[in-house]
Design a protein around this nucleic acid. Structure first.
Lengths: 214, 214
DNA sequence: ACCAATCTGGTAGTGGCTACCACTCAGGTA
DNA sequence: TACCTGAGTGGTAGCCACTACCAGATTGGT
């Protein structure tokens, strides 16, 4: 984790990571994940296999890198604690999805949305990636529980934590269903809308969407 | 899949698989999953590494083998279609858990429960196993959707399937939370009760437990 | 006694991944 | 300019999961 020292270093580092990931997703999509070796990716990006492992701990991470966990956690922490758990979590997921898929600012984010879709398709079709993707959800679940203040706050009530984990896990599962559907539709349907529909299907129409939003 | 031809063959096969799995879980628990090689397991069981791979396609499967998917599916198919989705699924999960952990008949299933706990602990602590375990849940989710008649029945309404998937995924996530808690408690709390509590936390106390059961 | 299917074991090889070490190149200091 | 540090990069060798491909052994049924 050598980065924050020099902003220029960090920038170059992020650059090569993006390059590497782009080549990886392209090759995996073209030839298949298992049929593509890390060496292939390295050659396509014009570096040595060693360098790939410097930037991505495993081959799977070439597809799975994700930084939106913090986004969700922030929105949850900012939401009103008076609302029911699933509404707090659900709204945070919907808002984060809107931020992710909505056009960034000015440029419609078609390119990045296509990239996200390509990664998602790989995750769905490749068992190893699918498994690790779900495990990432598990980590995100912990982050959500912490953001709810139920994790290891001052009074770590195991009962409260248990409830929060159950709710968070269920919400994430619903979101996952929405993600799958989104990928099937090639991103034509709006993702936030799909997530809202999935949450409504699981928890009932009254739970999500109503109430004051943070 | 060469088995059903001779019942004697199948029996011996199942025997060696149990032996192999027992040694594997023991060694993994003692030395750690990553620190134990497949060759170690093979030696402990007195066979060649090759034979291990004949019976278990991957090292992970030595811990993850599970046959209770059918159990859940049957209970769901037998439940009344008039009830809300999450209640049908939730009750099926609770009943299956009761069947699994409850003393079989006569002998209290302490040994098998300890074995189940050991496997669960491995799944929780080892990232690779955790990931594949969650992926198995994904497969179970599909089975549930099919059992609900929403999968590929005559009229495969994508909207119905979507709702069923969201509900099933959410229920399984809640059950997973209960499983974790059960493992933390070393199985002291009754698993069905924990699952019911997790479902209630996610979906509300009124959804689960009430209504006529199938 | 025979046949066929199955179970088992061995060898060799691929590919992900990890040490351990060496080189290059930017940036700051004297 | 000369020097030093530290990050980025590359190479070699090796472990281990896993997979062909092939060969012997054992079992069940005839």
């Amino acid at each position: 984790m050598p980065d924050q020292h020099s902003p220029l270093r960090a920038q170059r580092r992020a650059e090569t990571q993006r390059t590497l990931q782009a080549h990886a997703v392209r090759l995996f999509t073209e030839r298949g994940y298992d049929a593509t070796t890390v060496t292939d990716v390295a050659e396509a990006a014009g570096m040595s296999p060693m360098t790939v492992y410097r930037h991505f701990p495993t081959k799977e991470d070439l597809v799975l890198v994700d930084h939106n966990g913090r986004l969700v956690a922030e929105r949850i922490a900012a939401s009103s604690a008076a609302q029911p758990l699933v509404r707090r979590i659900g709204n945070a997921l919907i808002d984060s999805a809107a931020t992710l898929t909505g056009s960034g600012r000015g440029d419609d984010g078609t390119a990045s949305r296509q990239f996200l879709l390509a990664r998602l398709r790989l995750m769905i079709s490749t068992p190893a990636l699918r498994a690790r993707h779900l495990d990432n959800h598990y980590a995100l679940q912990q982050a959500i529980v912490d953001a709810l203040g139920a994790g290891a706050g001052d009074a770590a009530d195991p009962e409260t934590a248990f409830r929060a984990q159950a709710a968070a896990g269920a919400c994430l599962a619903a979101m996952h269903t929405a993600l799958m559907r989104w990928a099937e539709d090639d991103g034509r349907t709006e993702l936030p809308h799909l997530i809202a529909k999935a949450l409504a299907a699981a928890f009932g129409d009254d739970v999500v969407g109503a109430g004051p939003d943070a």
